[in-house]
Structure formats: C-alpha cells, structure tokens
Amino acid sequence: MDERTLAYINLYAVLGSLRELCRLDDEAKRLIKGEDISIGFSVKGGPEATLVFKDGECKMVPGCESCNIKLPFGSPKKFNGLINGTVTPIPSKGFTKIGFLLKKFTKLTDILTSYLRPEEDALKDERFFEVSTKVMFYVIVEALCQVGNNDKIGRFSAGNTVDGNVKIGVKDQFYAYITVKDHHLTPHHEEPAEYMSYMIFEDIHTARDLFDGKINAIVSVATGKVRVGGMMFQVDNINRILDRVALYLS
C-alpha cells in the first residue's frame, strides 16, 4: 500500500465525505450552522485541499491559499497519522480559530467515523443505515478516483480506460459518476446526463452487502443484483481499480 495514495484517499475521500455528512446528518448540520471557517490541509509530497464550512454547507476546494486554519504535514505518512489517530496536528495559521478545530471539527469527524465504521446494532436503524451506506458510497467513489490517479497499479488500470463517464449508483436512489479523460479520473456526486458505461446496484442493501464484503460481486452481476453494461472495457478497468480501493479502505 502506498502512503501517498492513502493520503489522497484520506483527504479527498474520507475528509471530503464531510460534505455529504453535513447534508445528511442532523447533528452535523447543527454543528456547522452559522459557521464561516475553512481548514486547509497541506501535505508535503502529497495532496493539498481546504474544507470550507459556510452557509450551512461543507465543501472541499483544491489548495490552501485562502484557508482560516492551516494544518501542515511533513509527509503523507504524517497526514495519514492524523486520520488513524496517531498524529496530533499543529496549525501554522489560524490559532484564534482553533476552537472550531478542537471542538466542532473533532465532533464532525467522530460522527463520520460512526457512519464509516458503524456498530452492527446501529445499522438496524433504517435512517442510520441509509446515511451510513450513502456516505460510504461517496467515499468509495472518491477513493476509486484517487487510486486510479495515484496508485501505481491503479494508474495502470486507468491507463487502459477509455474516455467518457461511468455511471455508478443505487437504482432510483442516489448516483455518482466518474469522468475519465486522458486516463485521469474525476468524481461527481450526481447522476450524469450521458455516460459510456454503468454499474448500478439493485437496491441499497445490495450496495451495502457489497461494501461490507458479505456478497460476491461476480455473482451479484450474474444474478442481476448489480447491472453492468455499456462500454464493458471501461467498466472492467474501473472494477480493477475498485478492487484496490478495498486494500486502502480496509
């Protein structure tokens, strides 16, 4: 596993999923209500992006130029340490706003963890199950792009992938798509107007079982629980990248 790729996943897929969390979870919505603050993550030899909390929403923008709080990390490994709880960040900018970082932001990431690494019992609650699965879905889509763009083997798969949009989603519920352009992958959190290939889960339970490794992906396609079609060569390569996502997210 490559630390740099993991850093891209941790920033764009894991912390990036705060965007969905703040849309879906009431407590998260409450925490960011009225806030106008941004946290920049600057990883030497790795990714650089800013989480912006404003107007009751969260979004991630590239770069750290206009952040209120800046967290520098000496290496991808150090940044990955923040995510797994072994490294405490020291801001290089924004000491006056550190309260948000220590309190509300920490609370947000705790909520996120509860959805991404849920207790078995918590999933029995229908709403929790839905939010958890949806957040996990977008984490996977984002992580897929980061693996395709950064991991050595992932880049090989992306190098074999033709241009165009790949539609991914849960039938009639939520969708995302990945734009492949010159073997670079870009995620989008919405249904595409046009697409070259698709991978659609029959229902949210199928999606969840696949994410949790409880059912076999090949059998799911063979039994119609997952629909795959269109430019098969494209979706086949995307699936090869998806296989490597599990390696990083596990």
């Binding site: 396609v221 063979a222 039994t223 119609g224 629909r227 795959v228 079609g229 098969m232």
Partner: peptide, 9 residues
C-alpha cells in the same frame, strides 16, 4: 455470464 458480457443477464 459476467466475463461473457451477458447484458442484460
């Protein structure tokens, strides 16, 4: 059916 690209199955 998967490698054989049976669409729709």
């Amino acid at each position: 059916p998967v490698e054989g690209c049976y669409v729709p199955i």
